[in-house]
Design a protein around this nucleic acid. Structure first.
Lengths: 231, 231
DNA sequence: CTCTGTGAATGTATTCACAGCT
DNA sequence: AGCTGTGAATACATTCACAGAG
């Protein structure tokens, strides 16, 4: 994981773990489509997605029965069904708050637009940044967030501010009616019910890796037994 | 979770889901320490970490019995134990491959050094980028990766290249003896056994959010029923 | 015969609830 | 009394294994 998904399971209820894998299948299907592959088996899809075949079949079965026994899945049709389930048949306008290194990089990152998430608005608390343009989008002051959000019909907010500013920005996003927030600030933020928040702390990813790396380097365990640097 | 962690469960075996939460507890403990808080209960720690108290106690119990019944946990001691378990009593030198928007932002991102992951080396395939300096670290050619990795005793490799280049870079990292890889390229990469890979596809996070957002905006479901844009 | 779709079985994770220490 | 640590219970996720469609 990181897998655990946000709450509010609907009536239909696809398991959160399965939802988290759908974007991966989608990525693979796009790749297959671009190579003119028309059909794919659960085994092949599993290899390309880095999971096992039973999981692929079970995950896809939550969306319906789109495979053909003895043959496999039609790439184009399956791609459409997965996209529909993920709500990716239309774009989701994004607002980014905080234009430091990470925020600016995300604003410039073409991968978002390409995958249906156009960055339509940027806000920052620093007056020196307000008025500049990044990737063709003007930076505006965070105080104007609410108006900007409704003007551009923002669906998703990305928080790339320092930790101390994150809760305030999240509060503004929530009161602006933004229902989904991707938080890169290293802090746990609170929201009203019904708002989905996904926290991605880049350093956390490295820390988990360092845990598993230790298991593979038993010769280096010695210095771990003595108290030393803690922060 | 994305919880599911990389493999090679050791003898001792802390559940992967628990390991994934340790960095969050650590972050909270650092925050508490900086406010001179000496003791913390599982309930308070849970609130600050955004989980529930039973989970905190269970997670921490895998590391040993460090709490005091009737009182709580000593912040400084618990911080040390969590850090030790994560292998964060010493630094882990990092190499970043691919210095586009994201790679450059990561190289400039102070949060890594601050949390024990100094960025010591940068590589790119583009000759125009080789020779430049980012955050005081020179960019070198990816062909030199192996020598650079051993020279700087690199422990963790970050892949921030385009998808097509990722597998090649990962292969070089693995042959250079790098045992942990954080992959931001939107592609599933293969490695030998014993190498831990964590994939973080930023657009995937947004896609999962868009799934859950749909549940909360039932009025907008209409246009999802007709085939339209698929990618 | 091939490959999907799915109940049943197994494995993991979370939560409950309380004994026992302080 | 307050709070941890942990078995037991529950919930969730993965994998197996095979019936049945093509």
């Amino acid at each position: 994981m990181r897998a655990g998904g946000p709450g509010a399971d609907g009536y239909n209820s696809i398991p959160a773990a399965a939802v988290a894998r759908l974007p991966i299948y989608r990525r693979v299907l796009l790749e297959l489509l671009s190579t003119r592959t028309t059909t794919v088996s659960s085994t092949r899809l599993a290899t390309l997605a880095g999971v096992n075949a039973a999981k692929v079949r079970k995950d896809l079965s939550y969306l319906g029965s789109f495979g053909i026994r003895g043959v496999g899945y039609n790439v184009e049709h399956l791609l459409y069904e997965v996209s529909r389930e993920l709500g990716l048949t239309h774009d989701w306008p994004v607002l980014i708050a905080g234009l430091g290194n990470l925020g600016s990089a995300l604003a410039n990152y073409g991968g978002f637009l390409e995958r249906g998430f156009p960055v339509r608005a940027l806000v920052d608390a620093d007056p020196a940044k307000v008025g500049r343009e990044i990737a063709g989008v003007p930076v505006r002051h965070v105080d104007e967030l609410e108006g900007i959000a409704s003007e551009h019909r923002i669906a998703i907010g990305i928080v790339a501010t320092p930790a101390v500013a994150a809760q305030d920005v999240v509060d503004r996003m929530v009161s602006a009616g933004i229902g989904s927030i991707l938080n890169f600030a290293p802090v746990v933020v609170n929201t009203a019910d019904g708002v989905s928040v996904r926290n991605v702390d880049l350093a956390v990813e490295l820390q988990v890796l360092s845990f598993y790396q230790r298991r593979h380097v038993p010769g280096d365990l010695s210095d771990l037994l003595e108290p030393g640097r803690v922060s």
